[in-house]
């Protein structure tokens, strides 16, 4: 057993476990978007789950830290919160904030984090940067909303886990990167309609299953 302290609170856990998981299990909230516990190495792309670990220079994403005995962690420092707020502002500046018509309304991690970090949903100092298309019909049975998507990669990784190979991919690069279903399906044993795990796992409802 390893004993670590998080914000002064002492926690007993197994050594080598993922720090972010341990914190979340112990009701210590750390903002996060792309984290999937079973994914190794972690995607570590959202850059929200920063914490400070004693002995390490500067904040580190907690999803990349393995717990070791005696570790002292702070989740609520000025530097950590500042990074989290900036990351969230960046997300929101590339996100179509239309909560009222969004199916993710009230279950949306962006809303939750905005409340927690006290960041306005519509930023005053960053101009929005949206993609041209609001909606793309993805083959074979999904709709994809590029301007909702936070590119966390959960859909890809889940698809890969379920099917052995992901049918979804990141396409393009940089600010124009999207999720794509290019080319549809090769002969698959499980059809996408039956599975739809990618839509289920999407935190912001950017992928929707089209029924009927």
């Amino acid at each position: 057993m390893a004993i670590i302290t998080v914000d002064g609170l002492s926690i007993e856990t197994e050594p080598g476990r993922n720090l972010l998981s341990v914190c979340l299990e112990n009701d210590i909230y750390i903002p996060h978007l792309c984290f999937m516990e079973w994914l190794d190495p972690p995607h570590a792309s959202c850059r929200l789950c920063y914490v400070e670990v004693e002995g390490k220079a500067g904040p580190v994403p907690s999803c990349t830290v393995s717990v070791a005995s005696g570790m002292a962690v702070k989740t609520d420092t000025v530097e950590v919160r500042s990074l989290q707020r900036t990351a969230l502002k960046f997300f929101l500046s590339a996100h179509k904030v239309e909560c009222k018509v969004c199916p993710a309304n009230r279950q949306c991690p962006l809303q939750e984090m905005a409340k927690f970090l006290k960041v306005p949903l519509k930023s005053k100092d960053l101009n929005p940067r949206l993609k041209e298309k609001d909606l793309e019909a993805l083959q074979p049975c999904f709709e994809y909303y590029p301007n909702r998507c936070v590119l966390c990669g959960k859909c890809l990784h889940t698809c890969e886990r379920v099917k052995g190979q992901s049918l979804l991919t990141f396409a393009g690069r940089g600010i124009d990167m999207t999720v794509s279903f290019y080319g549809g399906l090769p002969n698959e044993e499980i059809s996408c309609e039956e599975c739809a795990e990618c839509a289920a796992v999407c935190p912001v409802k950017a992928i929707l299953l089209v029924t009927g």
């Binding site: 590119l151 690069r173 940089g174 600010i175 990167m177």
Partner: peptide, 21 residues
Amino acid sequence: TQKESCGKCTFCRIGTHHLLE
């Protein structure tokens, strides 16, 4: 750098866009 950003992480993907803007 903005054009060459791979797009994976938030700070580089969206941050460099705002710097450029």
